[in-house]
């Protein structure tokens, strides 16, 4: 088992240019963006704005944390995210009246997790291609969510929970605390536990992992179940803080999450990656969004800039790794 994991680790610890790049690229990228921001806009380096940056992608960032496990374990990507976000949000608000906010939120989480479990069974146990499986389940679940509410907006009732979700602790919004909390659980889960090692092994070499008695199916399935749960959590939080929800609530979140994970440097092929890197990726995407507005760029340019950064980061990374491989 350790042998399986060793290559990925050793790369990070060695001192080849590639390893240096992959260790330092995220801090450097963040630094560069921060410098650009502070030079270009006087309002950038203010407590308020930096809180905005942290807060901007904290909800969708939760999904990116789960997506890290999907990619690390060789599950490519989960495209059913918007459906699970919608399910989490709509079920919570829909059930609020009959069962109270707390239970309704749990219900929302449960339903979204079920969606994730179905993905897990299809992909982990039936070994269906993740892109197709999650395309299918996403289509079904989003259709169901629209069927549930028709065209309507579901409104929330005032509740202690939603007041809490919108509040700040020690000057930092609860959304950010939740993101930090989840990241603090998931980072060691991937980096230090057997489950984390299984994930890396399954993504690194499926057959070898299977041969060394790693529960390959469970590991892969669990990554999708986790992502379903986190998408649901994202939906529940958004519904409670926004006070209303519609089926379109999570549109595009799958791409934001994938982009954040990829910018963080986790490989789509599986086998290496870290939650901490994804946190970096989430920060970078949030900084891009923030700078576009502060610098007065048109918001249509977001895709252009994000895409270019993805190509740049991944291309350079691939170049160094290839070079390291040849040496």
């Amino acid at each position: 088992m350790n042998q399986l994991v060793a290559p990925a680790r050793s790369l990070d610890k060695s001192t080849t240019p590639g390893a240096l790049f992959s260790t330092l690229s995220i801090p450097i990228a963040i630094l560069v963006l921060v410098v650009i921001g502070s030079v270009a806009s006087p309002s950038f380096l203010t407590v308020n704005n930096l809180t905005n940056v942290l807060n901007a992608n904290s909800a969708v960032g939760l999904i990116a944390l789960g997506m890290t496990f999907v990619m690390v374990s060789g599950g490519l990507a989960d495209l059913s995210v918007p459906a699970n976000v919608a399910m989490g949000a709509l079920v919570t608000l829909g059930a609020q009246e009959s069962m109270g906010t707390g239970l309704a939120a749990l219900m929302g989480l449960l339903v979204a997790s079920m969606g994730g479990v179905v993905n897990g069974i299809l992909i982990g146990y039936l070994r269906i291609n993740p892109i197709i499986a999650t395309l299918g389940t996403g289509s079904v679940l989003l259709g169901l969510s629209q069927l549930l509410v028709g065209g309507g907006i579901v409104y929330a009732q005032p509740s202690a929970l939603s007041t809490f979700v919108k509040s700040s602790i020690l000057g930092i919004p609860v959304f950010i605390w939740i993101f930090i909390f989840v990241a603090l659980i998931l980072h060691p889960l991937l980096a230090r536990t057997s489950f984390g090692r299984w994930s890396l092994a399954v993504g690194g070499n499926y057959q070898a992992a299977q041969a060394s008695a790693v529960p390959v199916r469970f590991t892969k399935a669990a990554a999708f179940a986790m992502t379903g749960f986190l998408a649901g959590l994202c939906g529940v939080l958004l519904a409670l803080s926004n006070g209303q929800a519609r089926p379109i609530i999570g549109t595009g979140y799958e791409f934001v999450a994938i982009t954040a994970v990829v910018i963080g440097g986790t490989s789509v092929f599986g086998g290496n990656g870290s939650v901490l890197r994804t946190v970096g990726g989430v920060l970078i995407t949030a900084l891009i969004g923030n700078l576009i507005i502060l610098l007065g760029f048109p918001s249509q340019a977001t895709g252009l800039i994000t895409g270019a950064i993805v190509l740049g980061a991944v291309g350079i990374d691939a170049y160094f790794r290839r070079k390291a491989g040849r040496l």
Partner: peptide, 23 residues
Amino acid sequence: VFKINSLVATLATLLIFASLALL
């Protein structure tokens, strides 16, 4: 040439050219 995984590469060009078309 740059050995970027096609899922990532075309996700990036999806974003880039959708954005460019709007701009």
